[in-house]
Amino acid sequence: MQLTYPKAPSNGVQTLRPALQAALQTQGFGVNRQFANATAGKISLSEAYRGYSLTLEDLSNGKGLKDARIGNWHYLVFADGLTIADAQLAEVRGHVEFSSLNHGNMAAATVGALKLAEQSPQLHGKTVELRVLFVSALHVVAIWLHADGEDLLIPIEPTPKELALAQVYSEAALLAKLKPAADQAKRRFDADTSGQLGN
């Protein structure tokens, strides 16, 4: 399997570096010992890839990946060979700005999904673009391997295990698994008159 990446913002890495250095100096990331112990000189970044999202409405209405909304740029952050964070840039009025730093399990889970993909017979010899898909209302995150004519997805943490397991799914198979939960959640949202759900 060969990974390809979209054309990243030319100043993406320069935009991220000060934010990463500030985060390292504050040592405010006690939950992630690897991040807290990393030194700025040992930090490296992956190629940039895009996040996409689908809503409950999209899933309920049978929409697929071609309808996914394009989101932030993502970079995996490495230190001493370990994946320690997922850094994000948002495009704002034609330029990129630092958006967030996720130092939870998402970065390591992304690398785990890519290792799983490399071993998958379905992906043997294929060239795919790395993407990440979010269905926030269901807490679903999936690594999206996009190729001409075929899209494969690998759910990662924090995706609930009862919705989907960490394995390779076709677009149709994963969306079919998520649709009942999306329909149920949408009914709950639609029936809510308090205005509190989703806040």
Results as ranks from 00 to 15, higher is better:
residue 1 M to Y: 14
residue 13 V to K: 15
residue 14 Q to T: 08
residue 21 Q to M: 03
residue 23 A to M: 07
residue 28 G to H: 06
residue 29 F to L: 13
residue 31 V to H: 13
residue 33 R to Y: 06
residue 33 R to Q: 09
residue 37 N to C: 03
residue 37 N to W: 07
residue 40 A to I: 07
residue 41 G to I: 00
residue 43 I to P: 02
residue 43 I to M: 01
residue 44 S to A: 05
residue 45 L to W: 13
residue 47 E to D: 10
residue 47 E to I: 02
residue 53 S to E: 08
residue 62 G to I: 02
residue 63 K to T: 02
residue 67 D to R: 13
residue 74 H to M: 10
residue 75 Y to E: 08
residue 75 Y to D: 08
residue 78 F to K: 07
residue 79 A to D: 04
residue 80 D to R: 11
residue 80 D to V: 03
residue 82 L to A: 12
residue 83 T to I: 06
residue 87 A to F: 05
residue 89 L to R: 07
residue 102 N to F: 06
residue 103 H to E: 03
residue 105 N to K: 15
residue 107 A to L: 06
residue 108 A to K: 15
residue 109 A to H: 06
residue 122 Q to N: 10
residue 126 K to E: 09
residue 126 K to S: 09
residue 127 T to D: 04
residue 132 V to A: 12
residue 134 F to K: 12
residue 135 V to I: 12
residue 135 V to C: 04
residue 139 H to F: 12
residue 141 V to E: 09
residue 142 A to N: 10
residue 143 I to N: 14
residue 144 W to V: 01
residue 145 L to W: 08
residue 145 L to Q: 07
residue 148 D to P: 09
residue 152 L to V: 03
residue 152 L to N: 04
residue 155 P to K: 10
residue 159 T to E: 01
residue 167 Q to D: 05
residue 170 S to W: 07
residue 171 E to H: 05
residue 172 A to V: 04
residue 172 A to S: 14
residue 173 A to F: 02
residue 177 K to C: 01
residue 178 L to R: 14
residue 184 Q to P: 00
residue 184 Q to K: 15
residue 185 A to D: 00
residue 187 R to P: 00
residue 189 F to E: 14
residue 190 D to V: 12
residue 191 A to C: 04
residue 194 S to C: 10
residue 195 G to N: 14
residue 195 G to Q: 12
